[in-house]
C-alpha cells in the first residue's frame, strides 16, 4: 500500500515537473502549467490511453510505456475537471479503476463510434438571432475521415413538432375507407398545420437537419457564429462522460471531463438516439 503511494507520488512528480521543450522562442520561466494542460482533444485521447510522454511525444505500440497502466492512472486523474460539481469523487475513482482494469482495460478510439461533438452556434432566422446546437460525428469516406452533422437542436423546430395532446392525436387520422372516396378528406391533414404530422405513419420522425438545410437554402436562415464546443463519450461500457474546454490558469485546464454518469445500456441507446437519430 505504502509502495503504491510512493509510486504515485513519484509519477505525479514526473508528470508535473517542468519539461524541457523544443526551442521555439525566447520566453523563460515555468511552463509546467502549459505542459499539464490538455491542449488538444487529440491529447485528451492520448492521455486517456497513455499514448504519450509528459512532453507530448507519442508512444507507439511496442514502446515500453505505451498504454502503461501505472502512468495511465495518473493521467486519468489529471483529465477530470477538479472544480466540477457534476463529478463525485467515488464515481471518478470507480471509473478510473474500471477503465484501467489490468485484465480488461478500456481505451478510447478516435475512429470508433459512440463519441459526438456538440457545437453551439448562432444563426439569423427571419432576421432574429437564434441559438442552435449542431451535433457532429466522424464518418469514414474514401481515403480518410470527416466530421458530419448528425442532428440539430433548435427550439423553434422542436416546438413545431412536439406531439402534445393525446386526445388530439387520437382524433387525427384518415379512416380506412378513405380511398373509396378518392381521399376527398385529405384536406383535413392540412387544415390545421399544427397537427399535420399527426397524419404521418408511426415511424415518422422529423429530420431537423433537413429543416435547417431547407431554411438555409431558402435564405430564411443565415449562419452567424460558433459558440462553445463540447464532446459526449459513450465508448466506455456503463459510463457516459462529457468533455469541455476549461480555460483557466493552472494545470487542471484545457480539455477535461466535466460530467460523469453511470448509465445503463438502455439509457445509452436513448442518449445516442438524440445525437444520432435513426
Amino acid at each position: 500500500m505504502k509502495l503504491n503511494i510512493l509510486i504515485n507520488i513519484i509519477l505525479v512528480f514526473i508528470f508535473l515537473a517542468p519539461a524541457e521543450g523544443q526551442n521555439l522562442g525566447s520566453i523563460t520561466g515555468d511552463e509546467s502549467d502549459l505542459y499539464a494542460q490538455t491542449k488538444q482533444v487529440n491529447q485528451f485521447f492520448r492521455r486517456f490511453n497513455n499514448e504519450e510522454d509528459r512532453k507530448g511525444n507519442r508512444y507507439y505500440p511496442g514502446d515500453s510505456l505505451y498504454r502503461d497502466n501505472a502512468f495511465r492512472k495518473v493521467y486519468l486523474k489529471m483529465l477530470f475537471d477538479k472544480e466540477s460539481s457534476f463529478i463525485q469523487n467515488s464515481q471518478k475513482e470507480e471509473f478510473i479503476a474500471d477503465v484501467s482494469n489490468t485484465d480488461n482495460p478500456v481505451f478510447l478510439d478516435f475512429h470508433g463510434n459512440d463519441w459526438f461533438a456538440e457545437l453551439a452556434t448562432t444563426f439569423k432566422y427571419y432576421r432574429k438571432k437564434e441559438n442552435l446546437i449542431l451535433f457532429l460525428q466522424l464518418e469514414q469516406e474514401r481515403l480518410g475521415y470527416k466530421w458530419v452533422i448528425t442532428n440539430v437542436y433548435f427550439d423553434q423546430f422542436l416546438k413545431n413538432f412536439n406531439k402534445g395532446d393525446k386526445d388530439e392525436i387520437n382524433k387525427k387520422f384518415l379512416h380506412p375507407m378513405s380511398h373509396e372516396l378518392d381521399f376527398m378528406n385529405i384536406h383535413k391533414v392540412f387544415d390545421n398545420p399544427r397537427y399535420a404530422e399527426y397524419y404521418a405513419s408511426k415511424t415518422y420522425n422529423p429530420d431537423y437537419r433537413t429543416l435547417l438545410f431547407y431554411e438555409v437554402k431558402m435564405g430564411n436562415m443565415t449562419f452567424e457564429d460558433i459558440g462553445p464546443l463540447k464532446f459526449h463519450f459513450f465508448q466506455v461500457d456503463g459510463w457516459y462522460f462529457e468533455v469541455n474546454y476549461i480555460n483557466r490558469p493552472g494545470g487542471n485546464s484545457g480539455w477535461l471531463i466535466t460530467k460523469l454518469y453511470k448509465i445503463s445500456d438502455k439509457e445509452k441507446e436513448a442518449l445516442i438516439k438524440f445525437y444520432l437519430p435513426e
Binding site: 523544443q22 521555439l24 522562442g25 525566447s26 474514401r142 481515403l143 480518410g144
Partner: peptide, 26 residues
C-alpha cells in the same frame, strides 16, 4: 514572445487522402 512548448497532434487522413494535423503553440 513565444513559449517553448509545442504540441503536435497525430496526423489524420481526410477523404482526399491528405493528412491533417494541428500544432499548438503559445
Amino acid at each position: 514572445e513565444w513559449y517553448k512548448i509545442e504540441y503536435v497532434s497525430d496526423l489524420e487522413r481526410q477523404p482526399d487522402g491528405t493528412y491533417v494535423g494541428v500544432i499548438t503553440i503559445f
